[in-house]
Amino acid sequence: MQLTVNSLAASLALLAPSAHALLRFSCSQLVVERLDPLVFPGVTGSPHVHQIIGGNAFNASMEYPRLDIPSEATCTTCTFAEDLSNYWTAVLYFRARNGTFKRVPQMANSGFEGAKGGMTVYYTPSYNNGKVTAFKPGFRMIVGDPTYRTEAQAKKFRQLTYTCLENILTRTGETLDMPKKPCKAGIMANIRFPTCWDGKNLDSADHSSHVAYPASGTFESGGACPSTHPVKIPQLFYEVIWDTRAFNNPNDWPTDGSQPFVWSFGDPTGYGNHGDYMFGWKGDALQKAMDSNCNINCPQLKTQSISQGNQCTKQVTVNEDIDGWLKELPGGMPVTDANGKVLY
């Protein structure tokens, strides 16, 4: 999609959430493999495949303070060069009628056409100009649960959704489950994290109890944080666009009319949508950006071009085929239903 300078500015304004200020930037793909230093620290070959963006310090063991991300990373795939954080999600697969799986590629968001897959990342400081506290060194969190397979379970997390894209600018019609029809311009997974912190713990046993949603209302409506988690933190938000266009032929879809896409963790429903985050900004760069109420662009931060971000790479640790037509999901991950029954 070719955009002029004026149309690019207009599209960015359209895509940005309705807020007084926010950071919106591209992070190209760093690596795709079965590593998960949050849930399975030290394990080479976690249960399912992830796609990771951000700093090249990413590895199987990232315990803090043994590993300080900003000190260890030498480059980042993100356009804000001081952001050496790591962000990751599961990977989407297409299941053909013959039972084989094919990894769905990612595509860049509007305005970031030069990016190598990856994600669009947002940090929104506030919807009512209130003070927010940037994440601290060693901070990490997860939102969502890969074991969930029902709508009731998915509703425990706010705003983990999908958008069936009619075009690259579509931002309406979000659903909790995977779209049930072919999407002309791909499927966008929307991952929004909680916005309140207990002010003490950089992590928790489940990697989510140290953060919470507002006690009433929403982040967007300026809802107050609960007394247990009184510190307002930025709303972290991922947009990940899966290029499903090559799989839109109805003749390739299941004969029973169901949708054919499956997450790498064996979820055919979409309700297990989740995302992981490890903070790794240099110094006080993120706090400075939040205090400055930067609006998409941020003169207070150092930037690099998307092409420079594309050059930041990491060698794959788990050597396996994740891109061919596979007889099973990588790691032998089974596809399961709401009752834990193995479907295939």
Rank of each mutant, 00 (worst) to 15 (best):
G270E: 04
C183R: 02
C183K: 07
H207M: 14
T120N: 10
T120M: 12
R95D: 04
A215H: 02
N128F: 06
V262Y: 10
F279Y: 05
N128Y: 08
T175R: 14
S18I: 01
E166M: 00
T77I: 08
R245D: 01
S307E: 06
C78N: 09
D284Y: 02
K155A: 09
L14K: 15
A215P: 04
L301N: 00
G45Y: 03
G199A: 08
T255F: 08
T77G: 06
C75I: 13
W263M: 15
V121C: 05
N86T: 04
Q51G: 14
M290K: 08
S258R: 09
W325C: 03
L343H: 04
W253P: 00
A115W: 12
N98R: 13
D243W: 11
S258K: 03
F193I: 03
M62E: 08
N109L: 13
M278F: 10
C298P: 08
Q106K: 15
Y213Q: 08
I69T: 02
N295Y: 15
H20C: 09
A189D: 13
F139Q: 04
P194N: 10
V316K: 07
I241V: 14
S305F: 12
F261E: 04
Q259M: 15
F80W: 09
W88C: 00
A285L: 08
A115C: 09
P105W: 09
S71G: 04
G272F: 03
K200H: 12
N319F: 05
T79N: 11
I306L: 07
W197Q: 04
L236T: 04
T74H: 06
R34F: 10
A152N: 06
A19H: 05
A215I: 01
Y238M: 03
I306V: 15
S46V: 03
I322L: 14
N109R: 14
V211N: 10
M119N: 13
D68E: 15
M107T: 13
G266S: 05
P268L: 06
F247D: 01
S208F: 04
T170A: 07
L160I: 07
R95W: 09
F80T: 03
G99H: 15
G45K: 10
G114F: 10
A16G: 10
L38G: 09
